[in-house]
Structures are given as structure tokens and as C-alpha cells.
Design a protein around this nucleic acid. Structure first.
Length: 156
DNA sequence: GCCAACGTTGGC
DNA sequence: GCCAACGTTGGC
């Protein structure tokens, strides 16, 4: 798949879109992804210039709260090599790294967050990976029509 | 905070 | 390589 659009989940109490706004250059490493399917997207498919929906999970209101842009292609997540990091993985090595990350920069914070409830109620968005039963993927491809509908709703 | 739905691990 | 046990995710 060669999606140019993605959705990244984050728990706002861990890292919110406002944290991204406050970050140096409004840019951050998207570290800590420890799921192989999501890793494959980060390593192989997400490229500089791709666009990202920033989603807040596990905290009301669960919603897409803004957008970001990929500023750096995937490279090995340095935290996997840090014994003191909670993302440390003793089975990974620099010769054969397991986990990857990309860097993203804040594009915009929506004037109106697009809630999960709203997405579930929109027939045009029923195929989004986000609302597929049991989907826990924290990095997901997004179709262009889904991107357009959500960004438009974010500006209502 | 609960727990269903997943994903991973490791004994065999 | 099966699968029970365990760990994690994330909506509710």
C-alpha cells in the first residue's frame, strides 16, 4: 500500500497534540511503537511529506484533534538501545534493529476535534481502520477521501 | 477501572 | 509449530 495519509494514536496524558505544539520546532520523534504491523509502516511505508491525523485515545473526548506532517523517514528507534528507557528491548541490536520511528511536525490543531462518536456515525467513514472491530493498530493508513472528510469536519 | 479483543511468549 | 498463559490496548 502506498498511502500518503496516516493516523497516529496517542494517549493525551502521555503525549498530546499540545505537547507537540510546545516541542522544539513543533517536531517530535514518534518513539515507543512496539507492534510489528505498525513497525512495518514506520520502517517501510511512511515517508517525509506524508500527512498524519493526530488522534487522542483513552481519554474523553476520543477524537482526531489535528494534523501533522512527516519530516523524517523511518530510522531505528534509539530508545530500544537505552537500558533505562521503558522502551528498552534487550533482544534488539544496532546491527539488526527491531523498532523504528519517524519524526513528525505539527501542522494544525483543529478548531473542532472530530470525535470517535462522530466518525462512527458517518457512513462515509465506516471503512476507516480506526473503527474496524478489534483494531488496536496505533499507526494506520488513511484513505484520501477519509482524510478530506475529517479535515473538513475539523474546521466546522 | 473493567475487560474484550488482540498480540506475544515459551513450554512442550 | 501448537496453544495456554500472559501482557497490552483502548473503548466503555
Amino acid at each position: 500500500m502506498s498511502s500518503k495519509y496516516w493516523l497516529f494514536k496517542s494517549e493525551p496524558e502521555v503525549f498530546s497534540i499540545h505537547d507537540l505544539k510546545r516541542a522544539p520546532k513543533k517536531t517530535t520523534q514518534w518513539e515507543g511503537v512496539r507492534n510489528y504491523q505498525a513497525r512495518n509502516f514506520l520502517r517501510d511505508e511512511i515517508k517525509k511529506g506524508d500527512q498524519v491525523l493526530f488522534y487522542h485515545s483513552r481519554k474523553d473526548p476520543m477524537a482526531v484533534v489535528g494534523t501533522a506532517i512527516v519530516t523524517k523517514d523511518g530510522y531505528p528507534d534509539p530508545f530500544q538501545f537505552e537500558p533505562n528507557s521503558k522502551y528498552y528491548d534487550p533482544k534488539s541490536s544496532s546491527e539488526n534493529p527491531r523498532w523504528y520511528l519517524v519524526e513528525i511536525k505539527l501542522d494544525q490543531i483543529f478548531s473542532k476535534p472530530v470525535t470517535l462518536k462522530e466518525i462512527k456515525g458517518n457512513a462515509a467513514l465506516k471503512d476507516m481502520v480506526l473503527v474496524q472491530k478489534g483494531s488496536r493498530l496505533s499507526i494506520q493508513p488513511v484513505r484520501s477521501k477519509e482524510w478530506n472528510a475529517i479535515v473538513q469536519a475539523g474546521h466546522l
